[in-house]
């Protein structure tokens, strides 16, 4: 479980996060949503420890990240997997080498053990025949799946995804969403996803955190988001006619 208390983050005079308090539960897909510029990516990077914040605390299983020693932080980070918006695959390595990288860095496994594990996770993301391809030879959807494989190869406790569906066609986006949901359930990990994708919100959002202007405006789930009267949330989530209709149908069916 990740607990966030009163996080403040500024860049110069720009106060980006203005005191966010929330928690992300184990075994759930937690979504952070909000308009561009609402502070989602900064918040995610604070969770990952890539940005230092001025006030507040972020605790992993009760341990305050800021109070950890350098070695403890390194050990904690070895338990994190991250899927970046642009996949961030190492372009000088093959797909298999990319996936094997965390194992080479953090484990003492033999080469054959590592290869077995890489085969296993590549199979898990339906890329069993892509071992020797370079990232530049893979499509956007394949790169995202490789990034997911790399993120889960070392059996992380926490999985973070920054806009995992951006730039993907709707069909591939659904495949990626389902994959993340399945992995979260299968390995009982804490998953935090930063997204703009309303399909993801409705399909896999077990907990949804809505940010507006650096503040936590609303939190709920994919079910309560249909019923919320919060104007900022409804203006954002139901900005398209399609989603307004989906909401109407949901409410008609469930009331």
């Amino acid at each position: 479980m990740i607990e966030v208390k009163d996080i403040h983050k500024s860049f110069g005079d720009a106060h980006i996060l203005k005191g966010i308090t929330t928690s992300f539960e184990k075994g759930k897909t937690n979504l952070i949503i909000g308009q561009s510029g609402s502070g989602k990516t900064v918040f995610l990077k604070c969770l990952l420890g890539l940005f230092e914040y001025e006030e507040g605390s972020i605790s992993y299983e009760g341990k305050n990240f800021s109070n950890l020693t350098r070695d403890e932080k390194t050990n904690l980070r070895a338990e994190m997997g991250m899927v970046f918006q642009g996949s961030a695959l190492f372009d000088s390595m093959t797909i298999a080498e990319n996936v094997m990288f965390p194992l080479r860095m953090f484990t003492k496994q033999s080469k054959s053990e590592m290869e077995d594990r890489v085969n296993e996770v590549l199979q898990r993301v339906n890329l069993e025949n892509a071992h020797n391809k370079m990232p530049s030879e893979a499509s956007g959807g394949m790169q995202k799946r490789v990034a997911i494989a790399r993120a889960i190869v070392n059996r992380p406790k926490y999985l973070f995804c920054d806009e995992p569906n951006s730039g993907l066609d709707p069909r591939t986006a659904i495949v990626i969403d389902n994959l993340i949901q399945e992995i979260t359930d299968e390995f009982n990990i804490t998953t935090v996803i930063n997204t703009h994708d309303m399909n993801s919100v409705m399909e896999i959002g077990e907990k949804i955190v809505f940010l507006k202007d650096g503040l936590l405006e609303w939190e709920g789930s994919s079910e309560t988001i249909f019923r919320t009267e919060n104007e900022a949330v409804t203006n954002f989530v139901y900005s398209s006619e399609l989603f307004r209709k989906v909401r109407k149908m949901y409410l008609e069916e469930n009331d």
């Binding site: 990077k45 990952l48 420890g49 890539l50 932080k73 390194t74 050990n75 904690l76 980070r77 070895a78 994190m80 991250m82 970046f84 918006q85 642009g86 961030a88 695959l89 190492f90 372009d91 990288f101 965390p102 860095m105 953090f106 973070f160």
Partner: peptide
């Protein structure tokens, strides 16, 4: 973001 990926991995 490859450097961010390295840093996230510790």
């Amino acid at each position: 973001e490859q450097i961010d990926a390295l840093e996230v991995m510790g």
